[in-house]
Design a protein around this nucleic acid. Structure first.
Lengths: 198, 198
DNA sequence: CTGTCCATGTAAGGCGTTACATGATTGT
DNA sequence: ACAATCATGTAACGCCTTACATGGACAG
């Protein structure tokens, strides 16, 4: 359960409430692991039941109660165990590729519309990542040369590299469809083909 | 629901049984849309209830009955509608990036182990895609220059391009960790940085 | 006679989503 | 006055997974 371990990861730095965790997710890991509110509260209750986190109810004058969760020793051990264990291969689901795969059922114009859409969305995403990357680097008080910082930025780098590759693939497809050129050999960087770039 | 439409996609070529569909998925779209048996049978029942497919029970002497499904007119219309409609942005979940993000909690050796694992798996996947690509092209009776064929191969090309990009990213990370070089600027192809390749 | 292929399903559980519910404080 | 923010939860539904169940035909 990745969500459980992501929560443990956050709590390994400092105790947080469910609300704070939600903000933490939205501000840093939503690119590769979105989490919604109800899920976070439910999972915190499970972690508590398993003894991996501890709940402290904070009474505040005039404010509603707040529940602050901190990681326990067994929680920290479980986090470390999970972080250091290679994951089994994940399977990916890409609904867009279903549309491509059965693209024989739609026209060139419809296909180009799909591809164009995907291109625009990916370019916007890339710009977001790019802007976030540069903004984070430019923060005056940030220690930008630590291992922690480097690893966190690497997850953004993953998104950026993926978006670049995707845009390249999409652009290539668009060109082929527009030209009515269905020569498959040019579509992938397969062994024995053009390999000098890279 | 992508699974429903993938099934309709297959049935738009010829009628199939649940069993045949499962084989079809495993042989062609499992790279981007794995489907298991119980899911297929359940979804076929739903599609039948919605009138998008038609069921025909084939009695066979000495063999058990077989149910063959064919697409209906409204099924074909629904398939076309879905295929031609751009999908809303999907969010991705990459548990491996959680491990990277919280990599501050594990040692260099543990991190390198994770990365190495991921590299080996991705290289194996790439070889599979690559082999499948070349084998499919080499089939004697295949019409390799049609639009349909091109689009199907493009989905494989997606996997190949993605694997290449991923391997590059992983390799870069390994090198940085090994050198203890946490300079973030080299980690992504961000605007204003090295842009001459591509 | 054991395993694999053909062929169809049910049951239970996990993880995620959307919508709903409540209530105080702070900003415009 | 109204919206946004802080703060916590429940309910119901959807999709996918794993395991279980059944049963004939055919190959080694």
């Amino acid at each position: 359960m990745s969500l459980k371990h992501a929560i443990l990861g956050f709590l390994s730095y400092f105790p947080l409430s469910g609300y704070d965790l939600k903000k933490g997710f939205d501000q840093s890991v939503r690119h590769f692991w979105p989490a919604n509110q109800s899920q976070i509260y439910r999972t915190l209750a499970e972690l508590d039941a398993e003894g991996l986190v501890q709940k402290e109810i904070v009474q505040r004058q005039e404010r509603l109660d707040m529940k602050v969760y901190s990681i326990t020793e067994s929680g920290a051990a479980e986090l470390h165990r999970w972080l250091a264990t290679p994951l089994p291969p994940q399977d990916t689901r890409e609904p867009f590729l279903i549309q491509i795969f059965f693209g024989g059922r739609i026209s060139d114009a419809e296909m180009l519309n799909l591809l164009e859409h995907q291109l625009v969305e990916t370019q916007q995403l890339l710009e977001q990542y790019d802007a976030l990357f540069r903004m984070t680097l430019a923060q005056p008080n940030a220690q930008t040369d630590t291992r922690d910082f480097f690893l966190r930025m690497a997850t953004l780098g993953y998104g950026i590299a993926g978006a670049h590759a995707y845009i390249k693939w999409l652009t290539n497809l668009v060109e082929h469809i527009q030209a009515g050129n269905y020569s498959v050999r040019e579509i992938a960087d397969v062994t024995g083909e053009a390999r000098e770039q890279n």
